[in-house]
Amino acid sequence: MKESKNTDIKKLFLSIGIFTIVCFCLDFVIGTILNKLYFKQQSGLQYRTTYAIEKTNAEVIVLGSSRANHHYVPAVFENILHYSFYNAGKDGSSIFYNYAILKGILKRYKPRIIVLEILKEELGFEKEWYDRLSELLPYYATHPEIRSIILLKSRSERLKLISKIYPYNSSLLTILIGNTELNKKRRMDLEGYVPLFKTYKGSLFNPKDNFKDPIDTLIHTK
C-alpha cells in the first residue's frame, strides 16, 4: 500500500500557490488596465453612465429605460423650460440602476427637475433586474454611495469583487470600442438622448401587448 508522499503534498501546495499568485497578479494588472480604459471612454453606453454619475450638472435629469432614453428630446425641454438637460435613460435599465444614478447625482448637486419614466413591471420582482446591476460594478470602488445598491446583485458580490477584472466582465469589446470614435459615428447622442431612425413596420391600430396595459391602469387599480 502506498501513502500520501510528502513530496506530492509539497508539490501540490507549491503549484496551487504559484498558480493562484500568478492569477491574482494578472487579474490585478488586467483589471487596472481595464479600469483606466473604462473611465477613459468618450462615447457609448458605459461612458453615458459615467457621465451621469460623475459629470452632469444639468438642471433637468431624465431617468428610466429605453422609453426614457429614446423619447425625451433635450431640445424640447431646453427651449421651453430654458433649463439645461441630460437624458440618463438606458436601454433595459431597472429601478435599481436609476436609483444608483440618482444617488450619484444627488451626492454632487440637486437638479431642479428629475423625471423618472417607469413601467409597473419594473416595480415587481424580476431576477434580471438584479443581474443587470453588473453595469454598476465599475463604480463600486469609487462610489460608496451606490455600494448598497450594487450589493443587492447577489450575496457573494463582495467576494467576487476581490477580482479586479470582475467589474469589467463581458465588457472588454465595449470598452475598447468606447475608446475609439466608432460609437460617435454609429449613434447620435444629444445630451444623452439617443434618437432611433428605424421605421415601425407594425400596425399602429393593433398595438402589442405591452401597450394594452398602460401605466395609468396601475394608478387606477392600486
Partner: peptide
C-alpha cells in the same frame, strides 16, 4: 481562468 473572469456569464 482569465477567460472565465473576462468573458464568463456569472448570472
Amino acid at each position: 481562468v482569465l477567460c472565465i473572469l473576462l468573458f464568463g456569464v456569472f448570472d
